[in-house]
Amino acid sequence: MFTPTYYLLHVADPAKSAGFYTELFGRPPVETSPTFALFVLGGGIKVGLWSKATVEPATGGAPGALEIGIALAAPADVDAFHENWVARGLPVFQSPTDMDFGRSSMVTDPDGHRIRVFATTG
């Protein structure tokens, strides 16, 4: 059995996306090049941003078919994240909403990849 610890997103502009994720993750990438950026997060999880123009084999997928999920401690934290996001003038895909599993909100990165913040209830 294995546990995935490395996620790659195919992006149009790795430098622009790295700026976005630097703000989201609260830390800079540990590696950058014109075609790639790498973040190392808590627990050793890695998020790579690879230029979709240079990824091999060539990509055929579209953004939005996969979500990055960020678990927060409490439903109020989802609302606070949303308020901070709006205050920074960033686009919101879904305002805070109570769902079957808990409170959730969604934003998208510059390429349309979905990022869901949520707090489970119950």
Rank of each mutant, 00 (worst) to 15 (best):
V92D: 00
A76V: 06
A119N: 04
P29F: 12
V11Y: 03
P91I: 01
D100A: 14
A65E: 10
E83R: 15
A53N: 13
I45V: 14
E67K: 09
P28D: 07
E31F: 09
P14N: 04
G48S: 05
K46W: 09
A58I: 14
A58C: 09
A62D: 07
A37S: 07
D13R: 12
P110D: 07
M106P: 06
Q94R: 10
S95I: 04
G69Q: 15
R103E: 03
F118M: 11
A65V: 14
G48I: 00
P96F: 02
G60A: 15
Y21D: 03
I70G: 04
D13I: 08
V11Q: 02
A15W: 08
D100R: 13
I70D: 04
G69D: 11
G48T: 02
G48A: 09
E83H: 10
A71H: 07
G48R: 03
A71C: 07
G61Y: 13
G43A: 12
A87W: 07
W85P: 00
P75N: 01
A73Y: 03
D13C: 11
T59K: 07
D77C: 05
A18L: 11
D111Y: 00
A58D: 12
N84L: 08
L66F: 15
I70W: 05
G89E: 07
P29Q: 09
G19T: 10
A15R: 12
Q94I: 03
T32N: 13
T54P: 01
F101G: 14
M106K: 12
A87Q: 11
M106H: 10
L72G: 05
V78I: 02
V55F: 10
I70C: 09
G112S: 01
V78F: 01
D79E: 10
F39L: 11
G64A: 06
F101M: 12
T32Y: 13
R88H: 11
R116G: 03
S51W: 05
H10W: 06
F118R: 03
V92E: 00
V92A: 01
R27P: 03
F93Q: 11
I68F: 09
A74G: 10
M106Y: 15
T59Q: 14
I68A: 07
F36W: 14
P57M: 11
G69I: 11
L72V: 08
A15P: 10
V78D: 02
A65Y: 15
V107D: 00
T97W: 06
L24P: 03
A76W: 02
R103I: 01
N84R: 12
G112W: 00
T97D: 08
A76P: 00
A71K: 10
P28N: 05
T22H: 12
P57L: 13
P29K: 09
H113Y: 09
W85Y: 02
D79A: 04
F36M: 09
S51E: 05
F39H: 08
N84Q: 15
F25G: 06
D77S: 08
P91M: 03
A15I: 10
F118Q: 07
